[in-house]
Design a protein around this nucleic acid. Sequence first.
DNA 1: TAAAATTCATTTGCATACATACAATTTTTC
DNA 2: GAAAAATTGTATGTATGCAAATGAATTTTA
Lengths: 144, 144
Amino acid sequence: MTMPRDDENYVLDDQVGFLLRLAYQRHMAIFMGRISGGLTPTQFSTLYRLREAKGPISQNALGRLVGMDAATTKGVVARLIARGLIRMEKDEEDRRRHILSTTEEGRRLLDEVMPQVRGITEATLAPLSPIERDTLVQLLKRLN
Amino acid sequence: MTMPRDDENYVLDDQVGFLLRLAYQRHMAIFMGRISGGLTPTQFSTLYRLREAKGPISQNALGRLVGMDAATTKGVVARLIARGLIRMEKDEEDRRRHILSTTEEGRRLLDEVMPQVRGITEATLAPLSPIERDTLVQLLKRLN
DNA sequence: TAAAATTCATTTGCATACATACAATTTTTC
DNA sequence: GAAAAATTGTATGTATGCAAATGAATTTTA
């Protein structure tokens, strides 16, 4: 007599985690194929949020708005600075902080890229009907 | 007269790509917090698929079953071998191939981990009702 | 005010994930 | 049967992501 394995009813292809990974991979492929300027999804989100913030904002605070931890944020910010899309200054009020802002070049790229980004969302959701798209977005928001 | 920016109606928090990234991050955090043996989601999927395959299977073929490209698969397989969870032999039929199989240790860990993995899916979907969970899974499957 | 806790940023190490290029080997095609 | 095409695995470089440790500066608390 051997114990039956605990695999009954377990179908990997039906697991949210597995599906989320594949869905995000597909979205990334669509994103990188349609965006100009070589922005990654994370870099776009970071740049967008920074312009959206309008006022001065620290590196870590910006990272939180995008859902990145401090270590990840550091790398993303460094690459955006290296491309001349954002700028960093020291905060004299709080000398731990690095204040970030978009550059003219960064805002120009953002303007150029917005229509593409809309198309990317469209393409990602293409397999679904309008109602289904809305349902998926609402459910994903509830998940976070 | 300046051109109005193309930001009307664009809300980053409503974009599938952004939400998919956050949802998968949350899932990974839940996964790593509940799994024993330090398996990552990808490593678990790979190990699970390999046992599921039963017959001999090449490295690249296994990677495709899990949704990884060849380069990623190489790293995942190397780490699973290093932990003694899977084994690699040369295929004499096709000398390009590396045939993979699970070890006793790998199957033992898989058995140990299955109940935890069920709990992880539960925890990830916790904010949703049973019907909503099913809807989300179905929509994600359609997206791939 | 001094000590403790918190916050901000950095660094290191590890683990996906993709693009690209490459060598070795099979398979297909002519 | 030889050339062309495809497949398998490897290597390198880039980009998220997290954990954990560190140092510097600020805020809270005793």
